[in-house]
Write a protein that binds this DNA or RNA. Structure first.
Length: 407
RNA sequence: GGGAGGGUAGCGAAGUGGCUAAACGCGGCUGACUGUAACUCAGUUCCUUAACGGUUCGGCAGUUCGAAUCUGCCCCCUCCCA
């Protein structure tokens, strides 16, 4: 299957800037870029599919550049609903450092920072050299701006598209980067760039967007318990990532397999059949979780995650060997708490519960298990003596939230 | 610059002097069911407590026995006109 057809089959193409793209993608070697703003210090699973598309294109002979928005991150890409909170310059710098390292480690891409070429443009040059190419009426008609007109949008965010357009042009001029790939919400910014390149350089640039990865109810994919699933294993353990993926909805798991794994069409279609005939076995979910965790963290981490899963969902914790318990505990958040405190205090002090009231609520509702036993007494004492192993106590909240408390 | 309408818990939205820690909806969390699901049902959702209590309705200062509700000043947002 040619790369273009493959991307279409995987459902990874939402909009294309020109029908010529099909031929170019299949038969040429293009330099393209994909950008991300440093709004956090790690990439998360939501970024993953767009980075994978770069990898797929690279495998098909194209040349990816990853751009981190050291400049644009300080301005803020308009969200549909409200103004973004500004991030401090120090934070931006820190995030760039982390993201750059991560992108190089996981994907092996070249990384550039748009701060390098935007920082020296002064206001006057900006207005004369770039502002003149943007008609306000045109900018106002962009979907993202139009949607913000009732709520309000600052000049800062309004200007964002100009900066992104400028990036595209800069990379076009200096690196012969002729294509941009991004999420569908970037369409407005991308077309601004294509037009700037046409107007100012008289050249044609190309782009395509990917559909947003969503859950069956249309909400954003990638959060569990309100927390993002990070690619950094210090922030989200491979076990947690495995759990997140293995819990994918039946209605969406095939879509996820297409966008997040390198499994072939045949393999995925076989799994699709399994979802229909034997949904309770969840083979597609297991394949998805295994593939992604292996691709990101490696085979060894996958095996650990599988082991922990097996232990927690199949066996009785107390019957496990010490080394199995240790392996399981490594997958969870570790918290340190004073010795000999009540369970309520332990939950609050460790940060598992946000208040004593919440901790008491969980305990009285029977959602807390300590070392495998359900505890409904607020005054239950958590101590070293009762620890499962090495002063560590395993706390389970709800059906599948585990924490380790060390005393 | 002029005029109008607003700011209530994570969000939306009631409440216009005491019975209000504040209806209702959404979202979140928990339990039952289940496929570690979905659906459905039940509970719970400011802080603290065994109970009492404490701090809240943009901010500050007042009126009052008593204020989210009345008054003054300030801050912020939206719309219309210029």
């Amino acid at each position: 299957m040619k790369i273009y057809d493959e991307l279409v089959w995987r459902g990874m193409i939402k909009d294309i800037s020109s029908p010529k793209l099909e031929d170019m993608l299949n038969n040429e070697s293009l330099t393209f870029y994909i950008g991300t703003d440093p709004t956090g210090d790690s990439l998360h699973i939501g970024h993953y599919s767009s980075f994978l598309i770069s990898k797929r294109l690279k495998m098909a002979g194209h040349n990816p550049i990853l751009l981190v928005g050291g400049a644009t991150g300080q301005v803020g890409d308009p969200k549909p609903t409200a103004e973004r909170a500004m991030i401090s310059k120090e934070e931006v710098a820190h995030n760039i450092e982390c993201l750059t390292k991560q992108a190089q480690e996981i994907f092996g891409f070249e990384v550039v920072n748009n701060y390098d070429w935007i920082k020296d443009i002064n206001v006057l040059d900006f207005l004369r050299d770039y502002g003149k190419y943007f008609n306000i009426n045109y900018m106002l008609s962009k979907d993202i701006v139009a949607r913000r007109l009732d709520e309000g949008i600052t000049f800062t965010e309004f200007s964002y598209m100009i900066l992104q357009a400028l990036d595209f042009m800069h990379l076009y001029e200096t690196r012969n980067c002729v294509m941009q790939v991004a999420g569908q919400d970037q369409w407005g910014n991308i077309t601004a760039g294509i037009e700037l390149i046409r107007k100012k350089l008289g050249k044609e640039a190309y782009a395509f967007t990917m559909p947003l990865v969503t859950k069956a109810d249309g909400t954003k994919f990638g959060k569990s318990e309100g927390k993002a699933i990070w690619l950094d294993k210090e922030k989200t353990s491979p076990y947690e990532m495995y759990q997140f993926l293995v819990n994918s909805e039946d209605a969406k798991v095939i879509d996820y397999l297409k966008t997040l794994t390198f499994l072939s069409k045949e393999e995925i279609e076989a799994l699709e059949e399994k979802v229909k005939t034997e949904p309770h076995k969840r083979e597609a979910q297991k394949a998805l979780a295994a593939e992604v965790v292996r691709d990101i963290h490696g085979e060894a981490e996958l095996q650990k995650a599988l082991k922990i899963t097996e232990v927690l969902f199949r066996g009785n914790i107390k019957e496990l060997a010490d080394d199995e318990i240790k392996a399981a505990m490594n997958g969870f958040e570790q918290k340190t708490v004073q010795d000999g405190v009540s369970l309520t205090e332990a939950l609050v002090e460790s940060g598992i519960a946000s208040s004593k009231r919440e901790a008491r609520e969980w305990i009285s509702q029977g959602s807390i298990q300590v070392n495998g036993e359900r505890i409904t007494d607020n005054e239950f004492i958590v101590s070293k003596e009762k620890a499962l192993i090495e002063n560590k106590t395993l706390i389970k909240r709800g059906k599948r939230n585990y924490y380790v408390i060390e005393q």
